[in-house]
């Protein structure tokens, strides 16, 4: 039956109101999980705070496993949902740049927006930076277009690329994520003994 909007159960005008509520839940969870602090986010890369890994991977595995069950019970037609298209060269480059930007800036777009709401000026500056960065990209697009659109694989999933079914991939990711939770918990304990100025 789902996605409800695409199959005519809900009109597309309601869709926008629903978008606000979904965004609210998203923003609430980001803020209340502690993503509004850049030190919490950056902490994952120095081993003193793994909250990012925990929230992120838990969300991914819950969504992955949940999606497959929803498809199985016939609640969602999996062929109708949006799958991010794959353009390997530009996406890898973009991800490398984003990683560096995350370490320097301490936020990612979503977390910076929630941090603005609780009054962080650094988050506001980061968001202005985002705006400028995208503006640079738009202006430089004629030079980047070829690279941007190269090696278009289309809307492919892991199963399309590897031939291993999505169920196995969900299991692999779940095992990987659960293992990382247990390992990071012990790393955190050791590292936190060494750092004194940061309150946990």
């Amino acid at each position: 039956m789902g996605p409800l909007v695409l199959n005519g159960f809900i009109s597309s005008n309601w869709n926008l109101l629903i978008a606000v509520f979904i965004g609210m839940a998203f923003g609430f969870l980001l803020e209340s999980s502690g993503f509004s602090s850049s030190r919490n986010i950056a902490g994952v890369f120095y081993g003193y705070n793994f909250v990012v890994i925990r929230v992120f991977f838990t969300a991914v595995i819950v969504a992955m496993v949940g999606l497959l069950y929803m498809g199985y019970f016939g609640w969602v037609n999996l062929s109708q949902i949006f799958i991010l298209p794959t353009f390997l060269p530009s996406m890898i480059t973009g991800a490398v740049i984003m990683g560096v930007g995350m370490i320097i800036g301490g936020f990612c777009p979503g977390t910076s927006f929630t941090a603005i709401t609780i009054g962080k000026i650094d988050a506001l500056v980061f968001a202005i930076g985002l705006y400028i960065g995208i503006f640079f990209f738009a202006e430089g697009y004629p030079f980047l277009e070829k690279f941007y659109l190269s090696a278009n694989l289309g809307h492919v999933t892991l199963a399309d690329v590897t031939g291993i079914s999505l169920g196995w991939w969900a299991l692999i990711f779940t095992v990987f994520a659960l293992a990382s939770f247990w390992i990071t918990a012990s790393i955190e304990k050791k590292v936190r003994k060494r750092i004194k100025d940061y309150k946990f």
Partner: peptide
């Protein structure tokens, strides 16, 4: 979580 994930291997779309 592990049991649920293992379950996904056996269900078919």
């Amino acid at each position: 979580m592990l049991i649920l994930a293992i379950g996904t291997v056996f269900i078919h779309e």
